[in-house]
Design a protein around this nucleic acid. Structure first.
Length: 160
DNA sequence: GCCAACGTTGGC
DNA sequence: GCCAACGTTGGC
C-alpha cells in the first residue's frame, strides 16, 4: 500500500465535505506532475487530506482511494472552469481518482507542527515554494502525522 | 528553443 | 492583502 497527500482549500472542499459526500471524484487537477501521480494511485491507498489556504493550514483527515484513475470528465465540459478545449477525447489529458473518507483527525495537525516532525523534514509540503497538490508521502510521514493527531487507525497499518 | 510576461498557488 | 515561487503561454 502507498500513501499520498491531497491538498484542498477548505473554503472550496473541506474534509467535512468529503464526509458529507461519502465519496468524491478528485477532479480538476490540471498539473502534469500531479496527474501522473494520480495515475499511480491504487484502490486501497490512503491519503492525508490537507487544508491549504486555511488558517492554519494543516492535515484534517484521512481518505482512501476507492477508484483508480479514469478520465476527468470536467475536461470535456465547456461550462466547467476545468474545461480543457485542447484535450483530445480519444486520448484524454487529465485524470481523476475516486476517494472516500476514512477518519477525521481528532485535531488538525498544522503545517507548523509538521515542520517540527523529523519524518517531514523532506517533503513537497515543507519545501519552500512547492505548489504540488498531489504527492506521495512515506509510511513514516503518514504514521508520524497520525501519531501527532493521536489517531489510531488499525487498518492503516501494514498487515502482519 | 529561449525567455519574458502572465496567472495561480498558498503561506503569512 | 501582500508577495515569493512556480508553471504555462506565446512571441520570436
Amino acid at each position: 500500500m502507498r500513501y499520498w497527500l491531497l491538498k484542498s482549500e477548505p473554503d472550496v472542499f473541506a474534509y467535512s465535505d468529503l464526509e458529507r459526500a461519502g465519496t468524491e471524484p478528485w477532479n480538476g487537477v490540471r498539473n502534469y506532475q500531479a496527474r501522473n501521480l494520480l495515475r499511480e494511485m491504487a484502490v486501497g491507498d490512503l491519503c492525508l487530506f490537507y487544508h491549504s489556504n486555511a488558517a492554519p493550514p494543516g492535515l484534517a483527515g484521512v481518505a482512501r482511494v476507492t477508484g483508480a484513475a479514469v478520465p476527468d470528465d470536467l475536461q470535456f465540459d465547456p461550462a466547467s472552469p476545468y474545461y480543457d478545449p485542447r484535450s483530445d477525447p480519444a486520448a484524454p489529458r487529465w485524470s481523476m481518482v475516486q476517494v472516500a473518507p476514512v477518519a477525521a483527525l481528532p485535531r488538525l495537525v498544522s503545517l507548523t507542527e509538521l515542520r517540527g516532525l523529523p519524518a517531514w523534514q523532506d517533503s513537497p509540503l515543507t519545501r519552500k515554494g512547492s505548489r504540488l497538490s498531489v504527492f506521495e508521502v512515506t509510511p513514516e510521514q503518514f504514521a508520524g502525522a497520525l501519531a501527532a493527531a493521536e489517531l489510531d487507525l488499525p487498518d492503516a497499518r501494514p498487515a502482519d
